[in-house]
Each structure stands twice: as structure tokens, then as C-alpha cells.
């Protein structure tokens, strides 16, 4: 029995990483998605510069907000694309025919989307630091970015797999995703602000625990309902 469980867990992980690996390999060959996300986020940051007149005093207060808006926009771009590719070329049907647990497909997609988002973030942060002369090298901030991205991608991947099956597909994802991802963005902005301002941990504790709670709840829900979303 125990051995049985172990093999099924091993095959689950294997299926999951196979999907992640497929996405990453395809991406490293074409670099379509990645370059689009990256250029887009840099443009968003530059537009914010004009829109908000990011002078030295404003920068202190809006950095967290600007960063998260940028990540959220770039994230939707990536999510849309990563699911649309599967749908367009009929790959999704192939994946669904594979004799693996469907939630393995979901988690595989989540991991690859998360990797894309984290890579983009890892490039945007130093660029933002450099352009606006703000020190963003802060372990607390990295933790918040990781937790926030996990929550955002967990919900986003689920909603993207619904959105691509609708008539209005690309337009629909941000409309579906933004209102339900608001808690992540609020908590992430609050926690990032706290870490950047060097506040003591007591004040950051609340948004941080909210982020963790959101991640856990929505990963669990997405795991439970993903089957219904891809069912034919």
C-alpha cells in the first residue's frame, strides 16, 4: 500500500515536471513569451515614470505599487500566452488524453508560469533599482515577491484555462483575474512597502500571513476544481 502511494506520488511529480520541462524547453527555443513579458514590463515602468513623475520623494512611497502593477500586467500577458499556445495547436487535448492525473497538468503549468514570472521579476528589479536609484536588494522583498507571484499564478493559471475556452479569450483573463487577485496585490504591496521602508516585522506580519493564507487556499481550490475546467 505504502509502496503504491509512493509510486503514484512519483508518477505525479514526474508528469508535473514533464509538463514544466516541455514549457521551459519550448520557451528557451523560441523566447517569444519571455521577451514579450520583459519588454512589456520595462515599457510599463517607463510609462509610470511619465505618468507619476517619479521624483525622489514620490519614489519612496510608490515603488511597491509600481512594481506590483508591472508584475501583474506582465503576468497576465504570460498566462494568456502559455494557455493559448496549448489551445491553438490542440496540445491541450493531447495533454488531457495522457494517462496522468489532471491536476499534474495544472501544477506543471503553474510551475512553468511561475518560473517565467520570476525570471522577469529578477530582471525588472535590478533595472528598476538602476533607473530610479532605489535599493531593492532586500531579502524580505524577495520573499514577498515569491509569495505574491505564487498566489497570482495559482489563480491566474486556473482562470486562464477557463478564459481561453471562451469566445472573448484574451480580453477576458484580466477581467476575471484582477478582481479576485486583489487580496494578493493589496497584501503584497503592503508587505513590500513595509520591507522597503525597513519597518519592524510586527507591522509586516499581517499582510505576510494574508499572502500565505491566500496562496494555500487558492492552490487547494484550484487543485480541486481544475478537473471541471478542462473537462470536455
Amino acid at each position: 500500500m505504502a509502496a503504491d502511494q509512493q509510486t503514484s506520488r512519483a508518477s505525479f511529480l514526474k508528469a508535473m515536471f514533464a509538463i514544466t520541462w516541455k514549457d521551459l524547453t519550448a520557451e528557451f527555443r523560441s523566447r517569444e513569451l519571455f521577451s514579450a513579458m520583459l519588454v512589456f514590463s520595462l515599457l510599463v515602468i517607463l510609462i509610470f515614470n511619465f505618468a507619476l513623475e517619479l521624483d525622489i520623494t514620490t519614489r519612496q512611497t510608490v515603488t511597491a505599487g509600481v512594481l506590483w502593477v508591472t508584475f501583474a500586467f506582465a503576468g497576465t500577458l504570460g498566462l494568456n500566452r502559455s494557455m493559448a499556445v496549448e489551445k491553438d495547436r490542440g496540445c491541450l487535448d493531447g495533454l488531457l488524453l495522457a494517462p496522468v492525473d489532471r491536476s499534474a497538468i495544472y501544477f506543471g503549468k503553474v510551475v512553468s508560469n511561475l518560473v517565467f514570472m520570476l525570471i522577469v521579476e529578477a530582471i525588472v528589479l535590478p533595472v528598476y533599482s538602476f533607473l530610479y536609484d532605489v535599493n531593492l536588494f532586500n531579502l524580505g522583498l524577495f520573499l514577498v515577491i515569491l509569495l505574491g507571484s505564487i498566489g497570482y499564478i495559482a489563480v491566474g493559471t486556473l482562470l486562464a484555462s477557463m478564459a481561453i475556452q471562451a469566445r472573448t479569450r484574451d480580453v477576458l483573463l484580466p477581467i476575471l483575474l484582477f478582481p479576485v487577485a486583489v487580496p494578493v496585490l493589496i497584501a503584497a504591496v503592503k508587505a513590500s512597502e513595509g520591507f522597503l521602508a525597513g519597518n519592524d516585522f510586527g507591522t509586516i506580519y499581517a499582510p505576510l500571513s494574508l499572502l500565505i493564507g491566500y496562496d494555500v487556499i487558492f492552490i487547494a481550490v484550484a487543485y480541486m476544481v481544475f478537473d471541471y475546467v478542462v473537462e470536455e
Partner: peptide, 21 residues
Amino acid sequence: RFGAVYTLIGGLSAPITFLSI
């Protein structure tokens, strides 16, 4: 199915939003 999934996500997210404020 999609409607049910989305009401479920919305029904979870809205209270968390209220909490986050």
C-alpha cells in the same frame, strides 16, 4: 461548470478582500 468555479473563487476572494482592508 465555469460559472460554478468562478462563483466559488469569487465567494472565497471577496471575504479575503474584506479582511485585507
